[in-house]
Design a protein around this nucleic acid. Structure first.
Lengths: 210, 210
DNA sequence: AACTGTGAAGTTTTTCACAGCC
DNA sequence: GGCTGTGAAAAACTTCACAGTT
């Protein structure tokens, strides 16, 4: 008889957990101790039923009649998402975009730290960006392997994105956040997410009719 | 007898159009003239059936046996998304993030131009960022109304995001791209999209188990 | 022969609605 | 009384598979 294996939790549910976490941290900052699926939902424009069902995938986090203990729920969600630890991240591309990303202060307290910045252009090498010195892509594979870095942010020109992604995967990277406005194709066991502000803007302009 | 009104096109379909457009422009740059749902799909990791069905919402853009004429399809998608014109955008927040956004060169040739940069802190006022001088939020409502700006990018601290969003909507803004890691609540007829790199990273860490 | 456009089937996601608990 | 957790129903979305066109 085959092992009964529980079905994987839908990716779309996983994608909402960071939003819940974000909202919960805010509620915590506001000094609240307890919340409900309804309160959370109205903040996030998500139905309360949706939130209850999403959370129920991971066990009974709430109390009937009371709601959810905010600090408890934060802890559990962080554990589920594995952000109750600090992940080192490699940033590739030290141009405008890369520099901006490296200065962004929002990573630290949500589980991420930029460990290295890489660039291929000789004039960037050794340049100081924040506390980092830009390193050569030649060193990239070795450093990623050595320091067991699993996550990379890609901020290189679109024309180079695929080639760099291939190198990253080769070096052991398992998740890529791609800021280049181009799709990259990687092994199925490597996660990729995209940041493309213009796509969001274009999405919205569709609705800007009178 | 009530008018028969065609059902709205699903938002999820609209959200994919910018990706199609992006990929098509790339194909065009590569010198290709014609493509197929299959080629497009394999580049985007989307099924060919999905692409055909999405495009069919807007009319027969393709030719049986041949595929899609790239330049024609680009034009039609730009028209559908209304990005065959230049949209002026107001950027609010001239800190690290705002400065980075204002230096990003990817907006121009995809339909958007930053018209003004606003900030509330006195020491930022008048500061030069690229070709812009930072303007006071006091002038914001008037300028947005005067120049009929419909789109804003929000790059202020989370604590101020809701208040600024309210002002923007009041001034006539109909679409907001929010970089602050917090949900904002606005009238139903105002579009909001979010950019939160950390949420994407947290989404991926879920899968980084061995 | 190659490829689109599309009803129909299949799958996934969301909402409903209520039993059960605090 | 207020709220969760959850089967069942409904809605939304994706894939299938093929007739029809070039």
């Amino acid at each position: 008889m085959p092992d009964k294996v529980s079905p994987p939790i839908p990716d779309i549910v996983i994608g909402r957990l960071p939003l819940y976490l974000r909202a919960l941290k805010r509620l915590e900052q506001e000094g609240k101790l307890v919340t409900s699926s309804q309160e959370l939902g109205s903040r996030l424009d998500i139905s309360s039923a949706q939130i209850r069902k999403d959370l129920s995938h991971f066990g009974g986090f709430g109390k009937q009649g009371t709601g959810y203990h905010i600090d408890f729920l934060i802890e559990r969600l962080q554990a589920v998402l594995q952000v109750n630890q600090e992940w080192k991240v490699a940033l590739v591309g030290a141009g405008n975009l890369g520099a901006a990303i490296s200065h962004y202060r929002g990573f630290q307290d949500r589980g991420f730290r930029i460990a290295h910045i890489f660039d291929s252009s000789p004039e960037k090498l050794g340049e100081a960006i924040g506390e980092h010195r830009v390193r050569s892509v030649q060193e990239m594979a070795a450093l990623i392997a050595e320091e067991d870095i699993k996550i990379a942010m890609l901020a290189v020109p679109a024309s180079q994105a695929q080639a760099v992604a291939d190198q990253l995967v080769q070096a052991g990277i398992r998740a890529i956040l791609n800021y280049a406005p181009i799709n990259i194709n990687v092994r199925a066991d490597v996660e990729v997410q995209y940041i493309d502000p213009v796509s969001h803007l274009q999405h919205m302009t569709y609705y800007l009719r009178d």
